[in-house]
Amino acid sequence: MSSRFKDQEHLIRMGVLLLAGIIVFFVLRGVMVPRDFGEYGHYRGGALEDNRARPAVYAGRKACEECHEEVVAARKGGRHAAVGCEACHGPLAKHASDPAAAKPGRPDAKTICLVCHLENVARPAKFPQVNPLDHGEGKACSDCHKPHQPKIS
């Protein structure tokens, strides 16, 4: 019995070594896995918070409308009433949180209108489109169309 043990001793030593390796692995795992891992699923719960933490760049039209009531009134019922403010004026979260910090520029009426309204066959046929070469005689669009109420009455 003891000689059999002796002949297997090296195998037992190897077994202990492998076992020790496995134990070290589980200990390391216990220490190194982030605490919030698995909070909701197979990921770090804190990753949700990380994704939320990003500051917004676009304020959202609600924020604009809170101060600029006169524009809301001007746009009411018009063809552009549904267009978000920042679609033309650009991202303005900074301005919304501190009106003095970032002043929005006035969009250039010669180019901004064409971003949407320049003729393009891929655009839906019903969508109003123009070719500036044969429309408007080279004037700025805003000379005739008020951007907040574009229909000429």
Binding site: R4, K6, D7, Q8, E9, H10, L11, R13, L17
Partner: peptide
């Protein structure tokens, strides 16, 4: 690499071969 075991008796080597 011996893991401190120097037993290379024929019996032990036979076990090694089987394993």
């Amino acid at each position: 690499m011996t893991l401190g075991s120097y037993n290379i008796s024929p019996q032990s080597l036979e076990i090694d071969d089987k394993v």
